[in-house]
């Protein structure tokens, strides 16, 4: 190729065709995520929407989840999810943010480098292992500690899921705190603030969108959690009555799908309603994640100038 002196005006050599195909494939793969989200919405809607016409509204809007008799009220399940999620958030947000602040602002390097991998280890823990430990260790403990008839309660689920959500909160919040420019802190320190005051007065406010994202995604993780919550919350789809409900069994939306889908006939009302629950969960996760994206609006733009 180098021996002759081909014209600069020569058009594309044949090698360009393979390159064109590869580039096309890459582009198609790039759009794959959009395609999958669309496909997921499509199939959930296709299987779940008929529930709205086939199942009487009085049943859907009623008070009971009792599929055998045709009672398909989502309320007990929504309340179950809500109870567990709120409980978990109350527990996970302070611990998660506290740990993140400690790691990013207070801890010496070696402490940080020991603790971080441990927290990441928790993130990799399969949900059924969490549930297993919940059944074997946490729930007997709760039963004794609060003198309850059963340890499989909303509270048990909240504790367990809250703990499992901590890594999500820690890692995103720590990133956000770490991203606050050093100069902000130094400016505040220079006018005589203590490091403690700087954390609350400068660093946290500056990182607030990241911190908010961390909390939202942590909550998102709790809502979507399935196996662990199914194993430790006692599987009772009842409307909670008063605060005491926290210490009784509940059933979340996710657990309902997981425990009942295996036994339903394809296309039956029950099947459709389980998909309807799936639509609700899908919509919730869309809302949470899109909001989190808008809040943090992290743009992965190349900072480096392209040319020297």
């Amino acid at each position: 190729m180098t021996s002759s002196n081909p014209s600069l005006e020569s058009t594309r050599p044949p090698a360009r065709r393979t390159e064109w195909i590869i580039t096309l494939l890459i582009r198609v793969a790039g759009y794959l995520s959009i395609f999958y989200v669309a496909l997921i919405s499509l199939f959930l809607l296709k299987e779940g929407l008929p529930a709205l016409t086939d199942v009487p509204l009085s049943s859907l809007a009623g008070k009971f989840w009792y599929p055998i008799e045709g009672y398909y009220s989502l309320w007990p399940l929504i309340f179950g999810s809500l109870t567990v999620t709120l409980g978990a958030a109350l527990f996970a947000v302070p611990l998660g943010l506290g740990t993140a602040i400690f790691l990013s602002e207070v801890a010496p390097k070696w402490v940080k480098e020991t603790l971080k991998p441990l927290v990441e280890l928790l993130a990799g823990l399969p949900s059924v292992v969490l549930g297993f430990v919940g059944i074997l260790v946490l729930s007997p403990f709760i039963r004794k500690a609060f003198d309850l008839p059963t340890g499989l309660t909303a509270f048990t689920g909240a504790l367990l899921l809250g703990w499992a959500a901590i890594p999500t909160i820690v890692s995103i919040a720590e990133d956000a705190l770490y991203g606050v420019p050093r100069s902000y802190r130094e400016a505040a320190l220079a006018v005589g603030a203590t490091p403690w005051q700087v954390i609350w007065g400068v660093t946290l406010p500056a990182a607030r969108s990241g911190v908010l994202t961390a909390v939202m995604l942590g909550i998102g993780r709790v809502i979507g959690e399935t196996m662990a919550v199914m194993m430790v919350t006692g599987n009772a789809p009842v409307l909670p009555s008063g605060l005491g409900a926290l210490f009784g069994p509940v059933r979340t939306m996710t657990a309902t799908i997981a425990s009942e889908m295996g036994e339903v006939a394809t296309g039956s009302q029950h099947y459709q309603v389980l998909f309807l629950i799936g639509i609700v969960l899908f919509a919730l996760s869309l809302i949470i994640n899109i909001t989190a994206f808008m809040v943090s609006n992290r743009r992965t733009q190349r900072v480096e100038r392209l040319l020297s």
């Binding site: 081909p6 014209s7 600069l8 005006e9 020569s10 058009t11 594309r12 050599p13």
Partner: peptide, 11 residues
Amino acid sequence: VLDPHTNVTEL
């Protein structure tokens, strides 16, 4: 060489 048909690789 600024011509759009230029073979930039060769260039």
